[in-house]
């Protein structure tokens, strides 16, 4: 569509009436600058040049200054933010390190106390076991003594009884033997 437009416009422009130039059609009419156009060209260019010189350069510099100022401010802000973040990070890091140390210390302490408790328990258990054993040993010894004493008494009683019986019935060998056997049988019955 714009091309159609351009096309129509081209026609409008090119269909201008063709004037008769001084040199007519022959020769360098096209190559020689027309005086009024030279004049116009120099005026127009002078306008553009003075505008570029007096207005564009300062405006451009101002824009660039504003831009570099804005960029600088932004950079500074970023720098400050970065510093703050770094110090915060440092803080956090030291805090973290402190916490870690604390934790390690607590664990160590706990381990130590656990070790102590363990040793204590073991020692106490050993002591108790020792106590139980020695008590048992004592009880056994006491029992043995008691049994021995009792046995001694019984044996003495028996010996006296046997001796009494022997004295009472000491007639002959036959009877003695029978007596002893009976006694032994009696013993067996006692058991």
């Amino acid at each position: 569509m714009p091309y159609l437009f351009a096309l129509a416009a081209t026609l409008l422009a090119t269909a201008e009436p063709v004037p008769i130039s001084e040199e007519a059609t022959g020769g360098a009419g096209l190559l020689l600058p027309a005086p009024e156009e030279l004049f116009a060209g120099l005026i127009a260019f002078a306008i553009v040049f003075f505008f570029a010189w007096k207005w564009v350069i300062p405006a451009l510099n101002q824009t660039l200054d504003a831009r570099s100022g804005a960029i600088k401010a932004e950079l500074e802000a970023a720098e400050a933010a970065k510093h703050e973040a770094e110090s915060l990070l440092e803080d956090y890091r030291s805090q973290l390190a402190g916490a870690r140390e604390e934790a390690a210390r607590i664990i160590d302490e706990a381990r130590e106390s656990a070790d102590a408790v363990k040793a204590d328990i073991v020692a106490r258990a050993e002591a108790e076991a020792e106590a139980i054993r020695s008590r048992a040993r004592e009880e056994i010894a006491a029992e043995r003594e008691r049994v021995a004493a009792e046995l001694k008494g019984q044996v003495a009683d028996l010996a006296i009884q046997i001796a009494g019986k022997l004295v009472a019935e000491s007639l002959d060998v036959e009877r003695q033997r029978a007596l002893v056997d009976r006694y032994i049988e009696d013993l067996g019955g006692v058991q």
Binding site: E36, F39, A40, I47, F51, W55, V56, A59, T63
Partner: peptide, 27 residues
């Protein structure tokens, strides 16, 4: 002539382009 007018117009358009392009010195 028409060319005369167009030449002056070209200068003015060039100035206007630069003026409106660089008028606001925004970052």
């Amino acid at each position: 002539t028409r060319t005369f007018v167009l030449i002056i117009l070209a200068g003015l358009i060039a100035v206007a382009l630069m003026y409106f392009g660089l008028r606001r010195k925004r970052a």
